[in-house]
Write a protein that binds this DNA or RNA. Sequence first.
DNA 1: AAATATACTGTATATTTATACACTGTATAT
DNA 2: ATATACAGTGTATAAATATACAGTATATTT
Lengths: 206, 206
Amino acid sequence: MKKLTKSQARVADYIGKFIDEKSYSPTYKEIAGHFKVNVNAIQQAISALIKKGSLEKVSGIARGLRVRDNSPEDMNKVKNNLIVIPLYGNVAAGEPVFADDNIEGYIAVEKPRRSRGELFSVTVRGDSMTEKKIIEKDKLIVRKQNTASDGEIVVALLDDEVTVKVFRANGGTPYLQPANNKYDPIRRPFKILGIVVGLTRDYSVV
Amino acid sequence: MKKLTKSQARVADYIGKFIDEKSYSPTYKEIAGHFKVNVNAIQQAISALIKKGSLEKVSGIARGLRVRDNSPEDMNKVKNNLIVIPLYGNVAAGEPVFADDNIEGYIAVEKPRRSRGELFSVTVRGDSMTEKKIIEKDKLIVRKQNTASDGEIVVALLDDEVTVKVFRANGGTPYLQPANNKYDPIRRPFKILGIVVGLTRDYSVV
DNA sequence: AAATATACTGTATATTTATACACTGTATAT
DNA sequence: ATATACAGTGTATAAATATACAGTATATTT
C-alpha cells in the first residue's frame, strides 16, 4: 500500500464512505460532481489508487469500485464468522422465556464450528455457580436444547425462573446441582432450556 | 415480511449471495442470465420482492439492489459496534509480545463504550487466577496500558513471560498477587502490558 | 534536461443498465 | 366469474456509466 497524495486520499475516503453508507459504489460522474472536477480527473485518481493498491475495480461494469480491505485475511474470517444472538431476561411467572418481549439486547459471538442448534444468551444472577468460575453478570452463551448429559452446565426453567446449574443424571431421577456448597441440590421438577457452551464477562460492567 | 414463492426466494437468494460475494448488486440481465429466463421475468420477481419487503432498490441507478436486513435495529447496532482484536500468544524469551508474528488469531468483541486505548487478547494459562473466576483457556480482553491501580487484574510481562495477576500497590513497592492461595505474591520486577476489561470462555474448547 | 507522476479541462462514444409496453398462460383468491 | 398474483417471452429505448483520446500545467524524480 503505497502512500497516497492528499487529493487521492480524499477521493479514496469519499468512495469508502459512500459505499459504507449506501452499500453501492459511486460512479465516476458522482465522484467528479462531489469534488466539482472533471470526470477524467477522477478517472486518473482512481487509476492511481488502483495502482497503489487502495482500490479495486471490476472493469466494464457500473459501480464496480471496491475499497481494498487491508486487514489480515484471518481477521476477515473472524468478522465473517460472527453471529448475533438474543440476550433474554428473566421472566415473570408463567411468561415464555423465548418471547421477543423478553429480549434485553443482543451479543455477538463467534459461530461455533459444529453450530447445530440455536444459540441464545442469559445473564447470570446470584452466586450458585462460583465453583464453576461463573459469576454474577456473566453472560452465558447457551445452545437451545431440552436434554443434557450428566455434568453439563445447563440453563433451566425452575419454578418459573431461569437458572443455571450443573445437570446431574447418574442413575436416579435427574436433578440440578449448584456449584457452590452453600446451596443444596435441587430435586424439584425443572425444564432444560439449553446447555452452556461459552460465556463472556465484562469487567467494566461489574 | 410476507411469504415468498419458491421462485422469488431463489431470486432473492441469488441476489443476496451475489452481493455477499462480489460486494455489488447484480443487474437484471445478469440475474435473468443466471436463471435462463427473460429480463422481464426478473423485473417482475424483483417488484414482488420489493413489495413483500425482502428487497430494496434505488431507482434509476445501476446495480442499486439491496437485500433488506430484517434483523431488529438493536441487532444491527451490535453488529456495527464490533471490533476484531488480535490474540497474542506467549513469547519466547526476549521476543516482543506485540509483534505480528506473535498473533495467534483474532477474536471479536463489542467495542467498549469508553473505548480509550487499544485492545488485545491473550489466552490464560495455569490456575493462578481461579479465585477471581478466571480459568485456563479463558481468553482475556485487555486494554493496552502500562499503569494500573491497586486491585486491578493486569496482564504483565514477568521473566519474559506473559502472565495474569492482580496488581497490588497499597503503599510500598507494587507487586503481583496471584488469585490462588497455592501461590505466593510475586515481588520481582515486571512490566504491565494492560488491564483486563473482559473475558470470553468457550466450553467446547475446554 | 528529460522523464514521470500529478491534477486537471473538454469532448466523444460504445456499452451497460433500468425500465416501460404488449402479450400468454396458470394458479389462487373473492 | 372475475379479479389478482404469478411466471413467463419478446421488444424497445432513454438514461446511466465506463472509458478512450486530445490537451494544459505543475511538481518530482532521475
